[in-house]
Every structure is written in structure tokens, then in C-alpha cells.
């Protein structure tokens, strides 16, 4: 697994660049607030709305808080969102898709119609609805984001399961009398892991974007906590006098999205090529 990952990273310069860039954002998010002398909530009265300088790397906001630290705290929120939401979507999407594909028939039809039904609703509206209902709780928000992003995953897993369902080795497992859950764990899931990894990589930017959209609208993360959406929203208010408040968090957001999109795309091509090679040789 680790070797495959390393081979993939070495497969092209673009992938290397995107991986390195993403890694540096992650490292900055983890260690940035520790390295920086400033605290995210401390106000520097000497430097209110100050442009970037040697002491405040990204400048400061209206009340003198260090933007670099706040941006990195926002990054932590984005990566937490990504981890929680992706976990939730894996936990729902894989069993749902695998069950639909394996059981088949009317149950499969019903389960996939439910997916179709939710799929045509914009996920963000569902999340907003949940936020209205249950109030603003950030873990609820993260969970809700996961709960809307399992749909594509369920479709992919179902498709793969259908493909595998009639495969000879599954038939053999069935005829040996193995239980459905055993077949799922030992034979189906290892075979569908590739597309799942690709889709997960491509789903993360969607979740990060969704969180920042909702926070931007004022319905997500709230002060004094922060996220890229909150920072961009604040930056928008003051962009005429201090554009850096919009530019730095916005750029971090865009870089992260770009890295994840690029890595997901390349990984898909990479795994595709590998399977075709293996089949042809």
C-alpha cells in the first residue's frame, strides 16, 4: 500500500508538486500556530489591520489578530471537516452500495432510487436545513457534510459490486457456503478499494468547499472559532481597505482544492493504466 503510494507520487512531476504543496499546507496547519509567536485570539494593539510584515506574516485583521495563525487554524478546521465527513460518507456509502449490489432485485431498485432522489437535491441546502433545525453545532455540521457526500460513493460501490457479483471467485465463495458479510469483507471490498480511494480524494475538496460556503454564509463555524469560509467572509467585508485579509485565506483554500483535484484525477489515470497494463500483459 505504502509502496503503491510512493510509486504514484513519483509517477509524474505534477503529482510530486501537488503532493509536496498539499503536504506543506498540512504541515503548516499542524505546526504553524505552534511556531508563530502569536496566538489566534490575542490582539496586537500595535498592529491593527496591518499589512503583511516580518512579524505578522499574513498581516493582521481589524482587531489585530495574526492572520497567519488564524488561517492555519482555519486549515485545521478544513482538514478536520475532510476527515470526519469522509469517514461518515465511507461508513454509509460502502455498506449501502455493496448491499444494494449484492441483494439486487427490488431492494436494489428502491435503495438506488433513494440515492437518485437525494442526489438531485443540492447538498448544501440539506445541510443548511439541518443547521436551522438543530442549531449551529460544528460536529453536527461535519457529520451533515458527510451524510450528503456518500451518494456518489454508494453508486460506485454498487457498480463495482455488480461487476464482481457474477465473477467466478465470488461464485466459488458462495458455493463454499461463506456468509454474505464474509464475502463482503474478504472478496468484494479489497477489489473495489481503488475506485473508492480515487473518489474519496475527489470528494474531499467538495466537502472542504461546502464547509467554507456554509461558513461564508454565516451558518457554519462561528467566532471566535474560525475557518477558511469565515476568514474569506470577513475578508470580503474589508477587501477595499485591506485586501490581504481576503487574498491569503482565499489562496490557501484554492491551493488545497487544486492539489486535491489534481491528485484525485492523476490517481484515477494511474490506477486505470495499471489495470489495463496488467490485463494486457
Amino acid at each position: 500500500m505504502l509502496n503503491t503510494a510512493l510509486d504514484f507520487v513519483r509517477s509524474s512531476k505534477l503529482v510530486m508538486f501537488a503532493s509536496a504543496l498539499l503536504l506543506s499546507v498540512v504541515l503548516a496547519a499542524v505546526f504553524g500556530p505552534i511556531i508563530s509567536p502569536w496566538d489566534g485570539e490575542a490582539m496586537d494593539w500595535e498592529a491593527l489591520e496591518a499589512p503583511p510584515s516580518a512579524s505578522h506574516w499574513f498581516g493582521t485583521d481589524l482587531v489585530g489578530r495574526d492572520l497567519f495563525v488564524r488561517t492555519m487554524e482555519g486549515a485545521r478546521v478544513s482538514f478536520t471537516v475532510a476527515i470526519i465527513a469522509v469517514t461518515v460518507s465511507l461508513c454509509i456509502g460502502i455498506p449501502w452500495g455493496a448491499a444494494a449490489g449484492l441483494i439486487g432485485g427490488r431492494t436494489d431498485q428502491l435503495m438506488m432510487r433513494i440515492v437518485d432522489g437525494i442526489y438531485c437535491l443540492p447538498g448544501i441546502l440539506i445541510v443548511i436545513l439541518l443547521v436551522v433545525m438543530f442549531g449551529r453545532n460544528q460536529y453536527l455540521l461535519f457529520g451533515a457534510l458527510g451524510a450528503i457526500s456518500w451518494l456518489t460513493l454508494a453508486r460506485i460501490v454498487r457498480g463495482q459490486t455488480l461487476r464482481l457479483r457474477n465473477a467466478a471467485f465470488i461464485e466459488a465463495a458462495r458455493s463454499m457456503g461463506l456468509s454474505t458479510s464474509h464475502i463482503l469483507r474478504r472478496h468484494v471490498i479489497p477489489n473495489v478499494i481503488g475506485p473508492i480511494v480515487v473518489y474519496t480524494t475527489l470528494a474531499i475538496p467538495g466537502v472542504i468547499l461546502a464547509e467554507s460556503f456554509i461558513s461564508f454564509l454565516g451558518l457554519g463555524i462561528q467566532e471566535p472559532d474560525t475557518s477558511w469560509g469565515v476568514l474569506v467572509s470577513d475578508g470580503t467585508q474589508t477587501m477595499e481597505s485591506s485586501p490581504w485579509l481576503l487574498v491569503f485565506p482565499g489562496t490557501c483554500l484554492a491551493i488545497t482544492i487544486w492539489c486535491l483535484n489534481t491528485l484525485g484525477d492523476r490517481l484515477r489515470d494511474y490506477l486505470d493504466n495499471r489495470t489495463t497494463h496488467r490485463q494486457s500483459s
Binding site: 481576503l246 482565499g250 484554492a254 482544492i257
Partner: peptide, 22 residues
């Protein structure tokens, strides 16, 4: 178009206001 995909509306839209309107 990859860059276009990566710059979210919440960032692109305010920047456009800043550049083209303000």
C-alpha cells in the same frame, strides 16, 4: 480550467467585485 475549478465562488466573486466594480 483546473485553476478555474479550484478558485471557489466565495473567493472569485468578491475579487471580481474588488477589481471590476470598485
Amino acid at each position: 480550467s483546473n485553476i478555474n475549478l479550484a478558485v471557489p465562488t466565495i473567493v472569485a466573486a468578491p475579487l471580481m467585485v474588488l477589481i471590476f466594480s470598485v
